[in-house]
Design a binder for these strands. Structure first.
Length: 614
DNA sequence: AAAAAAT
């Protein structure tokens, strides 16, 4: 089924539900659209499994339903954003949009069931799905919101009408009740508001922005494809992330959530053949998940237009707006054909949100709500952090000792994985080689490897065939890898944020995790932030580290460019009063005050909020 | 100085 849900809805005036036999399909893509897979041939369409309505379609240029398309200005039908989905209310969704749609969203025949065999794979799935979600621990989690007219949070999914098909997928995912970030972020998003959210992954962050997007697209009838090159596609939502693997992961999640909703999710990223991605796009796309480089390529080829974007989500938003990415993001968001803030809905998610990045981010937002959700209970306690003083020349043998000990302690069950972070790609290769030589099955992931190699390495690691993964920061953020028992910072990062993200690869799913860092004279600039972080997380700080920390002067200590002051994401910079100051105020000179900061706003977060955020 | 991200 090539036609996306949105396309179908846009043309729903005259509906032809006959599977795969619509004239429009026949007209546009004769071969592909009329194909009926073997298992569906001779099968009666039923309310639960026939594809979304297909239509005798007027050409895109004259088939307008609902609002009139981009050239006419406000696509929001007059600024009442919560109602945007109701344009041209033709009743096809019934009174309660979600339920009405879902019965027809029935699934495209070729849609692979991401849940596997619906009835038999529940265990496998539940384990995966609930990774990192400790529902019990969520009850007294500190939450801070700021902004105008913050919609109230919900306590159950039942309170929100996300639509039947999506609700079914939520049940399939074993999501019993919304996590805090979902409780707040979903109503905010459903109300049409822009959002800057700080929340840990594993607490349902991906779902927190996917649910409202999917739900909104399901019930929105606003879609109209403006005339353009026939091969240009017009996604309604764009989700950007900083690494290819993370985009894949988000795509996989989004596919589960959108199963049989008719909402089409496509992923596009570099390093993989573009032709296959182009074919997927041609089959229809409502939600595009992408890394920036490949997206720019697609935009320049005019294979994708952002003209119809209703939802923009940036995952790991602080990384996306960091120096390396900011120009590309600005190009995509500000210099192509994406609707401006206020005409689209923008959702930014990250665990760490430095103030200066918040300031940058506000360019992309309109009257947004800031949301900070504290860590799950005392979950940092789940990650035991250790720092050891190890000279460069001793690192390998020291690592060897750790791995041997781990092996002998039986900590290394079949599924106990060790993730080793190093600074450079060369260093990754060479350490992997050395580990293998010494009898430790290791693999490596970094940016100099082919995408095939990267994905292969990740699979080897996840499956336990290579229980040691040597990685650069490409693996630091967002990746949900079950059974990582130990994160070793073989080389410490230069930024405490990166450290926070790295160690957050373990201690998930209510399991304990261990994080060991090798510290030496090359890491002096990290002494203070690291010591402060560990102290806040109730970790035992070695005395030698405390001495280094007290010695370190911020100016000389390092180029921790955004220092502790910004690292903690739990505060809306708009409330800081100091946000008018020049940017460089937040540079290295702010380290200590930054840390003192978390105690300075009410203590709601207390300690720990700063750690293990993801 | 390094990593990531298009070909």
């Amino acid at each position: 089924m090539r036609t996306s849900w949105a396309d179908s809805v846009a043309n729903s005036a005259s509906e032809n539900a006959a599977t795969g036999s619509s004239e429009s399909n026949g007209l546009k893509r004769p071969t592909r659209s009329t194909y009926v897979p073997p298992h569906l041939r001779n099968r009666q369409p039923s309310s639960s499994d026939h594809p979304p309505p297909v239509h005798t379609t007027p050409s895109p240029a004259n088939g307008r339903v609902g609002y009139g398309g981009p050239p006419t200005g406000s696509r929001w039908g007059g600024g009442s954003r919560p109602d945007f989905g109701r344009v041209g209310d033709n009743g096809s969704g019934g009174g309660r949009g979600g339920s009405g749609w879902s019965s027809r969203g029935g699934g495209r025949e070729r849609e692979v069931n991401p849940f596997g065999d619906d009835d038999n794979t529940e265990e496998e799935f539940s384990e995966q799905e609930n990774t990192g979600i400790n529902f019990e621990a969520y009850d007294d989690i500190p939450v801070e919101t700021s902004g105008d007219n913050v919609p109230p949070a919900v306590n159950t999914f039942a309170e929100i009408d996300l639509g039947e098909a999506l609700n079914l997928n939520i049940r399939r995912c074993k999501y019993v009740k919304p996590t805090p970030v979902q409780r707040y972020a979903i109503p905010i998003s459903l109300a049409g508001r822009d959002l800057m959210a700080c929340a840990q992954t594993g607490s349902g962050k991906t779902a927190a922005f996917c649910f409202p997007i999917i739900s909104g697209i399901m019930r929105g009838q606003y879609v109209q494809r403006p005339p353009r090159g026939a091969r240009t596609v017009y996604p309604l939502a764009l989700i950007l992330s900083p690494t290819r693997e993370l985009s894949c992961q988000i795509h996989d999640e989004a596919k589960k959530f959108s199963y049989q909703t008719g909402v089409k999710v496509v992923v596009a990223y570099g390093g993989a053949p573009i032709n296959q991605q182009l074919r997927e796009l041609e089959r229809g796309v409502d939600i595009l998940v992408a890394t920036p480089g490949r997206l720019v390529d697609l935009l320049e080829r005019a294979r994708v237009s952002l003209q119809m974007i209703r939802y923009l989500a940036l995952d790991e938003a602080d990384r996306m707006l960091d120096m390396g990415f900011e120009p590309q993001i600005r190009k995509i968001v500000e210099q192509m054909d994406m609707p401006p803030p206020g005409e689209r809905q923008t959702l930014l998610f990250s665990a760490t949100f430095p103030k200066e990045i918040q300031r940058l981010a506000s360019d992309f937002l309109s009257n947004y709500i800031f949301l900070a959700v504290g860590r799950v209970g005392s979950s940092t306690d789940l990650i035991v952090q250790r720092v050891e003083f190890v000279q460069e020349s001793d690192k390998r043998s020291h690592l060897m000792d750790l791995l041997h000990a781990q092996r002998e302690n039986g900590v290394q069950g079949k599924q106990s994985l060790t993730l080793v972070f190093v600074e450079t790609k060369k260093g990754a290769d060479s350490l992997e080689h050395w580990l293998c030589l010494n009898g430790f099955p290791a693999t490596t992931i970094h940016g100099d490897r082919s995408q095939q190699e990267r994905e292969h390495a990740l699979r080897l690691f996840k499956s336990g065939k290579a229980p040691i993964l040597v990685a650069t920061d490409v693996a630091a953020r967002g990746l949900d890898i079950p059974h990582v028992a130990h994160v070793v910072n073989f080389d410490l990062p230069n930024d405490i944020d990166d450290y926070v993200h790295r160690i957050g690869r373990t201690g998930r799913a209510g399991k304990t995790g261990l994080a060991t860092a090798f510290f030496n004279d090359n890491n002096l600039s990290m002494a203070r932030p690291l010591a402060d972080l560990m102290q806040e997380a109730n970790q035992e700080v070695p005395h030698w580290l405390t001495r280094y920390a007290s010695r370190a002067s911020y100016g000389g200590g390092g180029r921790n460019r955004r220092s502790g002051g910004g690292r903690f994401g739990g505060r809306d910079f708009r409330r800081d009063g100091s946000f008018n100051r020049p940017t460089d105020h937040y540079g290295g000179a702010n380290s200590s005050s930054g840390y003192g900061y978390s105690g300075g706003y009410g203590g709601g977060y207390g300690q720990g909020v700063t750690s293990a955020w993801d």
